[in-house]
């Protein structure tokens, strides 16, 4: 298990370099691109906020393989360093169903990619977008099926 995590970590570093290269060539990256997505349920003038559903999000959050991959990345990319086993610490509590920056898989992927002002780093370019979606799929399970750690 630990070697899997270590391998995932090393692979992550290589993929990080690839991801940075990818940023400059949009072809092929579109499948994993973040959809426009609102953070709030209110909008002025009687409009409807963008729910921002995505095909990839829908696919990954139902996929045990991608969720499992996300779980390994959660340790290997050191998400656990701040969010512990999901309950939080330096980072926010991920076991709460309502999250400050949105609870949909699209919101979660956006949070990981862009970072957030009060201490969440931006992982765009450090982790490939495909793996960010896997992480988001795993993080979603932490509040949907919370377990004691």
């Amino acid at each position: 298990m630990k070697y899997v995590a270590l391998l995932a970590f090393c692979a992550g570093l290589i993929l990080a370099a690839m991801a940075r290269a990818q940023e400059s060539s949009p072809s092929g990256a579109d499948k994993y691109a973040l959809p426009p997505v609102s953070l709030v349920p209110i909008t002025p003038g009687g409009g409807t906020p963008i729910e921002g559903k995505s095909k990839i999000g829908e696919e990954y959050e139902k996929s045990p393989e991608h969720i499992q991959a996300g779980k390994l990345l959660f340790s290997a990319m050191n998400c656990s360093g701040c969010h512990s086993s999901g309950g939080g610490g330096m980072g926010l509590n991920l076991m709460l169903p309502t999250k400050v920056y949105g609870s949909s898989i699209e919101n979660l992927a956006a949070t990981i990619a862009e970072g957030r002002p009060n201490g969440m780093p931006s992982f765009r370019g450090f982790i490939p977008m495909e793996q960010i979606w896997e992480l988001a799929a795993y993080v979603k399970t932490l509040s949907v099926n919370p377990t004691d750690k």
């Binding site: 512990s84 086993s85 309950g87 939080g88 610490g89 509590n93 076991m95 919370p146 004691d148 750690k149």
Partner: peptide
């Protein structure tokens, strides 16, 4: 202070 989840004993180191 951090609203950490008590279900996660590993939290906050």
């Amino acid at each position: 202070a951090g609203q950490i989840d008590r279900r996660d004993g590993t939290a906050a180191l």
